[in-house]
Amino acid sequence: MTRSVRVLVAEDNEDHLFLTTRALEQTNHGLKLEVQGVRDGEEALDYFYRRGKYEDATRPHLLLLDLKMPKVDGLEVLDRIKSDPDLRSIPVVVLTSSDRPEDVEETYRRGGNSYVTKPITPNGMREGLRDITDYWMHVAALPEPPA
């Protein structure tokens, strides 16, 4: 039976969410990849704390997090997750179009697990996401998400 891995993508740009989800689904790793998208930081937190429409949400194995988001921005979401003993074990990959050294620094300072600048071309995007899933699902060991 193929292992099922849940990935949450927090991304405010609808197009990017679509492209990221599509690219993730196309990475064929012999895994059952469940990709769920949220559109801003607040929704991401609702998802993690099972509030509102995410009452029945199952916590993900991995979070792909954009930094520039309305309502609650990515760094704030990262802060909340990493300061919560329940959620802290979920790896967070920051996936953003920014390549500012300050953002990189801040991500790791707040406990982010990796920082990836969004590749601009479709090929780059696909390869990048394949590398990310490759690493987190094959090279590294993912913890079981908290219940």
């Binding site: 197009d15 990017h16 599509r22 479709p122």
Partner: peptide, 16 residues
């Protein structure tokens, strides 16, 4: 930076 974002979409959908 902001110009980059729609470009990613443009190139992505073009590819599909």
């Amino acid at each position: 930076h902001d110009l980059k974002s729609p470009l990613v979409s443009l190139l992505g959908f073009l590819d599909y």
